[in-house]
């Protein structure tokens, strides 16, 4: 199990770490039992994500995917951001070790949770939006 150079880059120099005090939306996925928690903050102006920050408790892959998703989402419209998937985030990092693909690859879901929160707070329709993976799925918490 070796991480790609891109994963190590994002892990050791994570982008957009922190919180946004007056965030338009906040999303959280994972839980302490499975060992990954991602919290994503977004600032939305005119339907565009103008700022995004994250806090993550988790392994190298969890931190790198969080960092990468913030980079990918910044400047995107809400519709564009909703198209980001966990798989796309992993791909942008030149892949993740197989064992990490499920357990620590939740960043796009974290972003989605933040967008849902933003829509609810702004009174916008959420349609059928839902977070697909809120947890690793294998830990005791999911059962």
């Amino acid at each position: 199990m070796r991480y790609s150079k891109k994963v190590m880059d994002h892990f050791s120099h994570p982008r957009n770490v922190g919180e946004i005090e007056d965030a338009s939306g906040v999303g959280e996925v994972g839980n302490p039992v499975c060992g990954d928690i991602m919290k994503i903050y977004i600032k939305v102006k005119d339907n565009v994500i103008t700022d995004i920050k994250f806090n993550t408790f988790g392994c190298g892959a969890a931190i790198a995917t969080s960092s990468m998703v913030t980079e990918m989402a910044k400047g995107k419209t809400i519709e564009e951001a909703l198209k980001l998937t966990n798989a796309a985030v992993a791909e942008a990092l030149d892949g993740l070790p197989p064992i990490k693909m499920h357990c620590s690859n939740l960043a796009a879901d974290g972003l989605k949770a933040a967008i849902i929160d933003y829509k609810k707070k702004s009174g916008l329709p959420c349609d059928n939006l839902k977070v697909e993976h809120s947890c690793c799925g294998g830990c005791g918490a999911a059962k």
């Binding site: 302490p32 060992g35 357990c103 830990c139």
Partner: peptide, 21 residues
């Protein structure tokens, strides 16, 4: 868990009463 190759942390640490996190 990440280093145990499973989704659970060490059975030893859980057996001495540590919470998962």
């Amino acid at each position: 868990a990440c280093t145990s190759g499973t989704l659970d942390p060490s059975h030893v640490l859980l057996a001495i009463g540590l919470p998962h996190e």
